[in-house]
């Protein structure tokens, strides 16, 4: 097991487009880092660059302290799980698992023992004779994981490994992955476009947009203390509400250049403190999600979403005033998007 370090990594492709822009972060030994961003933000390229499947234009990649830029993928002691599993369709589960060991000319008896051990660990022992087309999504996923584990990697790379599974299976596999990470204790980089998956899995989260790192932090900090408007808008569901400065009325002193943000779950139906602020608007839509209601109001022509406890008194098209604590307010520079202190 080893640490992973990326130092000022750039990748520029044919047309002069910068796909990765000054990527600089490190994962310490045994850490699980999730990388999240919208599609096309460069997260898969980042992962493929670490794996050695794509070359970086400049910058260095270190695994366990060794610079690996010039090493072939198979020399980097890295394993990768692909989005669509990428199992060899003409091989059985056993042959899929054994392929890497065979390619490295490991003795047949050793291959047999290791494949069986991994299969037992992942609950695949009854499926060793089956072909990928005869497996369910979860079984394919486990096979792909097993194949990666048998590479004996120092760093484990996962490229949206759960995106092809249905929702209940996804959360089950997520738990399995976390347990696996804990028991194997290896450095993992987990790429996803799903921010909730990134927050729930990662010990630290890298938020990527347009090839640039927007923020690297613990899930709590990413959610509670976003450094710019992109992170604030991308992380959290439903997404953060953005408001013009005038909602603060006399309190605001820089309404021209600042945009304010408030998370839907921080909006309240009642006033709690004397200095709480409020917005009001017409209720456009009430969505019952069981224990919580999601309410959309139209305020100043814009939409606001609030998550509140169920309240039978709420009616569509009625006027509603929503309260919030000033400390829950985020402020961002309107042009640069960077976070600024709330001015009152």
């Amino acid at each position: 097991m080893a640490s992973l370090e990326l130092s000022h990594v750039f990748r520029v492709i044919g047309g002069g487009q910068t796909v990765l822009h000054d990527i600089d972060f490190s994962a310490h030994h045994g850490e699980l880092i999730s990388v999240v961003g919208p599609s096309g933000c460069g997260k898969s390229t980042l992962l493929r660059s670490i794996a050695g499947l794509e070359e970086v234009t400049s910058g260095d990649i270190f695994i366990g302290g060794n610079r690996v830029n010039d090493l072939q993928p198979q020399q980097r002691r890295i394993a990768m799980v692909f989005q669509n599993h990428a199992l060899y369709p003409h091989m059985t589960v056993y042959q899929n698992l054994a392929f890497g060991l065979r390619a490295r000319r490991v003795a047949r008896s050793v291959v047999e023992a290791r494949v069986r051990r991994t299969a037992v660990r992942l609950g695949l022992e009854a499926l060793l004779g089956r072909y990928p087309r005869e497996l369910s999504g979860g079984q394919k996923q486990r096979t792909a994981l097993g194949r990666a584990m048998l590479r004996d990697p120092e760093v484990f790379l996962l490229d949206e490994p759960l995106s092809s599974l249905d929702v209940p299976l996804r959360s089950e596999m997520r738990r399995e992955l976390m347990a696996l990470h804990k028991s194997l204790g290896m450095t993992m980089v987990y790429v996803t476009h799903d921010q909730s998956e990134a927050l729930s899995l990662g010990e630290r989260v890298v938020v990527l947009s347009a090839g640039k790192i927007q923020q690297i932090d613990t899930p709590q900090e990413i959610y509670g203390n976003p450094q710019n408007r992109f992170v604030a808008a991308f992380v959290g569901w439903p997404p953060m509400n953005f408001l013009n400065g005038e909602i603060l009325g006399a309190h605001a002193n820089d309404t021209q250049n600042v945009e304010y943000g408030i998370r839907p779950e921080r909006l309240m139906l009642q006033q709690h403190a004397a200095d709480d602020l409020s917005v009001s608007g017409r209720i456009e839509c009430i969505e019952s999600l069981g224990g919580v209601w999601q309410i959309e109001i139209i305020h100043n022509g814009g939409r606001l979403i609030a998550r509140v406890p169920p309240d039978a008194a709420l009616r569509q098209d009625a006027e509603l005033r929503l309260w919030f604590n000033q400390t829950d307010l985020y402020a961002f520079n309107r042009t640069t998007g960077t976070r600024v202190k709330v001015n009152r």
Binding site: R48, A51, L53, Q72, P73, Q74, I78, A79, M80, F82, Q83, N84, A86, L87, Y88, P89, F99, G100, A103, R104, R147, R151
Partner: peptide, 12 residues
């Protein structure tokens, strides 16, 4: 990706 997987698996 299948070919990438083979490369990662160390197949020449």
């Amino acid at each position: 990706e299948i070919l990438d997987a083979a490369r990662m698996d160390g197949a020449g």
